[in-house]
Design a protein around this nucleic acid. Structure first.
Lengths: 225, 225
DNA sequence: TGGCGGATGATTGTCGACAATCGGTTATCT
DNA sequence: AGATAACCGATTGTCGACAATCATCCGCCA
């Protein structure tokens, strides 16, 4: 019986806990991009010393989530349209590399995981449940990145995703129909399942690029009413 | 007369100075990969409080230059062959994106800067001065990355370069002849100067990949005598 | 009234001291 | 003699206090 054992303690320094909690707080959309954060208030709210909190803030600054204003305060990063373009092109480049490496992988489990994730996306699209589609879309991308077997790539991808999430959590994303989503993912998924590395890289780039272009067009339209 | 004015003070916090000095110290090869660093000794040597030094170490940890061992000490990052592969593939992907964006740039100055840097590399190769060749090779790559007009890309490229430099500064790099270096850079440079974005991206990837493969082969041979 | 300089409050930057943890050594038990 | 537990020194983790900086406000002068 599992209940006969106490739960193991997940040891984590206060610095790391503080950093993780702060990151989650910001990425959850609880504060707006551009919002000012002060060490004194946050340290008080989080029940830690200010120096401990500074470690967290500096970590989040290196992740691009906050910006340090010396002697004045900190701000939640506010992404311009150019910033979004940079993040999206970077993400596309990383996805392209991930797709190439995943397609090259000799491990049959890789092919299987990607096929399962793609099938789940197709099933969600046929059911038309947009929340489920979004989840499966995200899951497919994550499986591809994890299948690349490249820890730095996965880490960079996560950092870029975080920053994109910071922006999108405070904006309504452009909605798309299930048929479009299926069609967009088909060439990339086929290349991946066929083990065609160059085509997988190319199609992953095309997919990300078209997605990014649509988002940028929407942002520009929103910025000029 | 310039001498009639005192030199302006470059204001920089002690935290940032400490971080920069520490980074330079490590990247200069003064300490070996895997070497243990302690906060007490470094803070004493650098004449700052330990907490100030911690800021620097944590920053360098996020850059991949040092590794934190909780309650024990810090280590200069020691790159395995797999690490080098990861850094090299990441670098190739970033260079490929930079080449694509630079080739797409409508600004004629971009074309001119790349042409100048390529000409300098060719001239150095004809003279056969290996130090000069190395400098021009590096300069060409840097011009391409800067020409992409993508600050995050430039930043990521620099971070990857730093880590590669950490490793190579302590190893003898594989020497290559001037003719080979000229030949390797020709397809990429031609595509860039022709404004052919897709070919520039492809050739940049090919160039970086072949360079990385040769380094990895050399490392694997060195690891098994 | 407008501009400039100084003061002030709010914040961050830096410091040294105390608390927590780890790895190695020594002592004790079987 | 080998295994285990306790101890200890060296280090990092965390804290609160003092120092430095910035932006804003107020007062003064032309």
């Amino acid at each position: 019986m599992k209940q006969s054992q106490p739960r193991p303690v997940a040891k984590q320094s206060v610095e790391n806990q503080t950093t993780d909690n702060l990151r989650e707080f910001i990425l959850s959309g609880s504060v707006q991009p551009g919002a000012r954060l002060t060490e004194v208030a946050l340290a008080d709210q989080m029940g830690v010393a200010r120096a401990t909190l500074r470690t967290g803030l500096q970590r989040l600054a290196s992740e691009g989530i906050v910006v340090q204003i010396p002697y004045t305060g900190w701000q939640v990063a506010d992404l311009s349209v150019d910033d979004v373009w940079e993040l999206w092109t970077l993400r596309a480049s990383l996805e392209s590399l991930a797709a190439k490496l995943a397609a090259q992988s000799p491990d049959p489990a890789v092919r299987e995981h990607i096929a399962n994730a793609y099938d789940a996306l197709l099933a969600a699209c046929r059911r038309g449940n947009m929340k489920k589609i979004s989840d499966c879309d995200f899951a497919l991308h994550r499986v591809i990145v994890e299948s690349a077997g490249h820890s730095r790539l996965a880490r960079q991808y996560q950092l870029v995703e975080q920053q994109v999430r910071l922006y999108i959590a405070t904006s309504n994303n452009v909605a798309e129909g299930p048929d479009d989503i299926m069609e967009q993912h088909r060439p990339m998924a086929e290349a991946l399942l066929a083990g065609d590395a160059d085509r997988a890289a190319h199609e992953a780039w095309q997919h990300s690029e078209s997605e990014g272009k649509r988002l940028l067009a929407w942002l520009r339209e929103k910025a000029s009413p």
